[in-house]
Design a binder for these strands. Structure first.
Lengths: 133, 133
DNA sequence: CTTGACCTTCCCATGAGCGGAAGGCCTAAA
DNA sequence: TTTAGGCCTTCCGCTCATGGGAAGGTCAAG
């Protein structure tokens, strides 16, 4: 398979696939003409990567997950630990965003949103307090 | 005021303050020795920026907000529109994260997390489907 | 033989800064 | 007076995960 094929089948842009090779996540063969020649196993890895990235795992997380994916004797607990850390990360991000949402939503509600210059949003932004403490 | 003072009072690192000058968000005076000399109005703007950034506004959003902040005749509706766009952005990010959370949480629940190699998380990641469609 | 779709590498850009080097300035203490 | 140290300046490179585009090689079809 050439890069366009794996791009279409994995859903990852060709640029991204080349980048993943650069940083050592995959290691496709090369044809005589210098083109990358992807095996089914490369495609599997790329699909795996696309999915893990879409779930918010960082590239370094993905590197670890791939290592576990390839290690047929690893304990499922190892994988679970990574996934749980990722879940905690997601939960933390959600609460941060919810705190922003609450603050900003209060400001928007307080603003009449008409043609007059008086604006509680700017007044609220003027105050030195932050949403996170 | 020198940069350290405004840094302490605004809560922004000195590096960030210099960066904000670079990109034209603030425009402090200079002393004879070349040091930046901040007025109270600069400090106000920096505090405003710190607060807006902590609420997730991008630098370009902040540029627009600052322009509105400085324009004493602007309509509050202009500010409200920006803030509402930001709220929508936050809401979108929250739902994306919640979708990730749901998918990953299912996978984690399905995984025994013991010493055996069988792992539903990796199997779930292997599948080509993504969390967002 | 040419066209057009591929492929390659290389370099530059993003956002929003951080880290550090090299060097100037200022104040206080020895 | 010198020295120490703390502050300030600019400049350069780094981050992360790509994206854009140039310059050039390859391949299949018409």
């Amino acid at each position: 398979m050439n890069i366009k094929d794996v791009s279409l089948r994995s859903g990852l842009p060709a640029k991204t696939i080349r980048y993943y090779e650069d940083i050592g996540l995959i290691n496709p063969l090369r044809s005589a003409n210098g083109y990358r020649s992807f095996r089914e196993s490369d495609l599997h890895k790329l699909s795996f990567l696309a999915r893990a990235r879409s779930l918010g795992f960082s590239i370094e997380d993905c590197r670890r997950l791939l290592a576990l994916y390839e290690d047929r004797s690893r304990a499922s607990a190892d994988v679970k630990a990574l996934a749980q850390a990722q879940l905690e990360d997601i939960a933390r991000k959600i609460s941060e965003l919810q705190a922003m949402q609450a603050t900003l939503s209060d400001l928007v509600t307080a603003c009449s949103g008409d043609a007059r210059p008086d604006c509680p949003i700017l007044k609220g932004l003027e105050r030195g307090t932050t949403c996170c403490g």
